[in-house]
Each structure stands twice: as structure tokens, then as C-alpha cells.
Write a protein that binds this DNA or RNA. Structure first.
Lengths: 256, 256
DNA sequence: CCATGTCCGTACGCTATCGAACATAGAGAG
DNA sequence: CTCTCTATGTTCGATAGCGTACGGACATGG
């Protein structure tokens, strides 16, 4: 069950093999090791469903080179991605907030490995380690703020820029230029028709920013893609950076 | 600065004069009184701006019979309501999460009173009172989940049902049938044109569900309005109820 | 009583997107 | 090698909502 954190990295793909989860990596060494000692390393396969709305949460996941999409469902035909979790984040925030009911559907969008910890073990660690708890709560704040940004984005931005943003966010988390996504899949994430994706992606391809073929999409010109994306991509990064690196306010620690 | 919590209720309007803030009311009596002792009662006036994005948070607010809209801004002309806070909630969640930067713009949508506590005092109380902290974190979870619901709603539901939902949510928080809102204001909240509101509200009025005139909108048939609203209204209530009343998971308290 | 500003109704052209359907072609299985 | 499935491209009409603009009704205050 518990493995040494050094047995963690996996060879065989073109990603940075030493990439840790950023929520864990920045912890004090003792806390980090104790937490990792409670985790097991699991491999997440593409399209794997990690949880459905209403499930009882068994584990939290800290992706290293995998990443996960969080989906809200209205009904059969209407679902929408409301967030992503890669090495910068986690799945299972509800545990940090004291709850054990999965609020969203989670599917693996990028195959790879992740640290998995049991709900109970995480709860114990959170009690035991204030630094961990503080860091997770900051990430909760990031999630809320990013969700607000995404709401405005969803309302006011068009498919092309939103698609570009999605590709950039995915590329950041997948750490690879080639993403295994079909247009059908992209349409579901963005909450638009596949035809809309065909049009938008076709334009990006014509401009030489991306290329794709039967479920393999490759980013060719990342800089140009950043220009094509809406401002929400940069906003998201800014929120993460500002929030996670903000100075602690007075009395949020016993001394400062 | 500190006032007796019994000086709190105000006469002179048609709302339930004894309505407390629900986040505070359910606390153990000692904790509740200590918290209220740190609060001051303030009157919030319609359209008052409580904070802008990026401000340093000075206070948290616990509305009693007032309520507040939370707005995300992309630019001058594009803003969007991403949440509401009435007696069921609070403004200033970032303080609970260990941050002092306002993530959203907050404006008073329904005049009335609220308890206000200084950022530092709240932080101290949160450390001192685990029950308070737990309860606030649950509310954080509610906010996240409701935001996910609202995202899907924004994407897939039409103006009419969304308007109906907004009116119901406002009525719940205002505790009155008549709301002081113009169509211009509704349009800004929903992220649509005023003309779109004119059409949708006109239909609701024709059907006898509401009536309005120059900035005063009255709900006539609440039951019918609930039918006209999208499912997200009920979903929101369900999320709040389920989350706030959920049993604590194992080890989220030292004993259970 | 008039002037001004706010609020609401209506109208016009336009576009992004929808929903559905059909055609083509590559990839994988047998 | 063929067959089948999946991914992609294309087309069609329909529509909800956009941006803009104008006019009328009403309230307020001098």
C-alpha cells in the first residue's frame, strides 16, 4: 500500500519523469514524506471514470503526470467541464472541506500516474498537519475563483478562443504536445456541438497552430495558440499563482 | 464596535424581524455568542458596493435580512453574477480559506442588515472554534457546487427559466414578494441584454406570475414561478441542504 | 408645469450556434 | 483483404440571442 516516494517516477513516456504533484511538493519535507507514505501510486487510464455525482468518496487523487476533467451533468445529453486537475491540483476537495460525497463526475483526460490516498487517511493528515490543510484550502480558493472566471468565459467568449484555452490548459497538464482527444470529446468538454469544434479546430489547423487526425491532436505553435486563446487562460494562471503564493494573513498562523 | 446580539433585530419592514444568519444560528450557543460579540450590526443599502476584485478584505459579512450579489468581471461591459449571499450564507469566504484578497465584486441586491466582523477577528474565531470552521468549510463546498450548477445552467438554459430561477432565489433571500430591480439590473446579473429580459419578463407577466413597473417587481404566483424556473433552482436548494446537514465523515472530528 | 433622467417596449438586421442528417475515409478486427 | 466502427467533414434550415437604436411613459425636482 505504502511506497517509498522515490519509487514514484515512471519511465517510458516523453514527459518529465520527475514531475511531482505541486500541492504536495511544496510541503515541509517531514509532512510531505508522511503524506506520501500514506499514498499509493496508481496509473490512470484514458477515459477512466473516477467518480460519479453522488458517489461516496473513497480516495483523493494527486495527479503527477496524469490529469482529470471535472464535469457537471444536467441530464443525459447536457454535460459540461467545470474544471481540470493535473499536477497543480487534486481531485477530492470535498474531503478537505469535511464531506464525503462526490459533487461532480471525474474522468481521466490524460493517462498517467497519480498518488491516491484514502479518505480517512487524508482526513487524519489534515488534522495532523496544519501546513497541509492551509495549502489545500488555498487550492479550494483557486477552484472557486477559476470557476467564476470560467463562468464569465462560458458566457462571453466564443468557441475558437475557448477551444484554444482548453488546449493550452490540457497541454500544461499533459506535458506533451500531442493530446488524445476527438472533436466529439472536445465538444462535450466545451458544451458545444461537434460541428462547432470542427469549424473552430479547422481554423486553428489552417493557421498552422495545431494539427489533428483521428483522435490525436498536436499543438504546433504554442505561442500563437496563446494569442488565439481568450484572456481567461492567463487569468487562470494568475489566480493560481497569486493565491498559492500569497503571504499568509495575520493570525492564520499562530506566529508570523 | 461590539454590540449585544439582542440589539440586532430591526423593526419597520415586512420581513421576519427575528431572522438570524443561518451559518451562525446553528452554532453551539457559546460559540455563537462569542462570535456575535465580535460582530457589529451594519445596514446595507441597495446597490452599495462592498468590495471590488483585488481589494484587501477588511470584513466578512453575515446577512440577516439583506442579500448580496457576487459578480465576476471580464471587462467594462461584461460582468456576470456568479453567486448570491443572503441569510443562508456569507460574504468573505476567502478569509475562511486563509486569504485576504477579494476575488469578486460584491454589491448589495437587497437592503437590510448584516453582521460584520473584522478579518482578523474572524481568523481568530476560526482558530478558536472548530465547529465554526467546519461549518464555514461546508459552506465553501456549497459555493463550489452551486457554481458548477450555475455554469451548466448558464450554458444550457434559456433566459426565461433562468430569470425565474433568479427571482425565486432573490425572493428567498429578500423575504418579500416585491424586489427593487430594474430590467437593466436583471440583464446585468444574468449576462444578457435588457431586451432579452423585457421579453422574458413580459411573458411571465402575461401569464400572471409576476408584475413589475419601473423598478419594482412583484412575485404574484410563486408556485407557478417554480414551475417556470429551470431545475437548477431545486438543485441549488438540494445542494445546500444536503451539504450543510450531512453527517460528519469519520475523523473530521476527534470523536464522533 | 416643464425639464430631465430613468425605465420599459418595440423594431431591425445580424451572427453564432443549434439540431439533425448524410457522406467520406482511416483504423482496427476478423 | 474486407468489413465495420469511429472520426471527421459538410450541409440544411431554424432560432435564440446579439448590438443598436428610437420612442413613449413615468417620476422627480426645480
Amino acid at each position: 500500500m505504502t511506497r517509498s516516494p522515490t519509487s514514484v517516477t515512471r519511465a517510458g513516456d516523453r514527459r518529465d519523469p520527475a514531475r511531482p504533484n505541486q500541492l504536495i511538493a511544496a510541503l515541509p519535507k517531514a509532512d510531505r514524506n508522511r503524506l506520501l507514505g500514506q499514498c499509493e501510486l496508481v496509473h490512470l487510464t484514458l477515459a477512466q471514470v473516477l467518480c460519479e455525482v453522488g458517489d461516496t468518496t473513497r480516495h483523493a487523487y494527486f495527479p503527477s503526470d496524469s490529469f482529470i476533467s471535472l464535469l457537471a451533468r444536467l441530464d443525459e445529453h447536457h454535460e459540461l467541464e467545470v474544471g481540470m486537475a493535473g499536477s497543480e491540483g487534486m481531485l477530492g476537495m470535498q474531503l478537505v472541506l469535511g464531506l464525503r460525497r462526490d459533487p461532480l463526475k471525474a474522468i481521466v483526460q490524460g493517462a498517467g500516474s497519480a498518488w491516491r490516498i484514502e479518505a480517512r487517511a487524508l482526513a487524519l493528515e489534515l488534522e495532523r498537519c496544519p501546513a497541509l490543510h492551509r495549502r489545500m484550502l488555498r487550492y479550494a480558493s483557486v477552484l472557486m475563483d477559476q470557476r467564476a472566471v470560467s463562468m464569465a468565459c462560458l458566457r462571453y467568449h466564443e468557441i475558437g478562443p475557448r477551444l484554444s484555452r482548453w488546449l493550452l490548459m490540457s497541454q500544461d497538464r499533459a506535458q506533451t504536445d500531442t493530446l488524445p482527444v476527438t472533436q466529439e470529446c472536445l465538444a462535450a468538454m466545451l458544451g458545444v456541438r461537434r460541428v462547432g469544434v470542427t469549424t473552430a479546430a479547422g481554423q486553428l489547423q489552417q493557421q498552422g497552430l495545431i494539427t489533428y487526425h483521428r483522435g490525436r491532436l498536436t499543438v504546433l505553435d504554442r505561442a500563437a495558440l496563446e494569442t488565439a486563446a481568450c484572456s481567461c487562460y492567463a487569468a487562470d494562471l494568475g489566480v493560481y499563482s497569486d493565491t498559492m503564493h500569497a503571504k499568509a494573513p495575520p493570525t492564520s498562523r499562530h506566529r508570523r
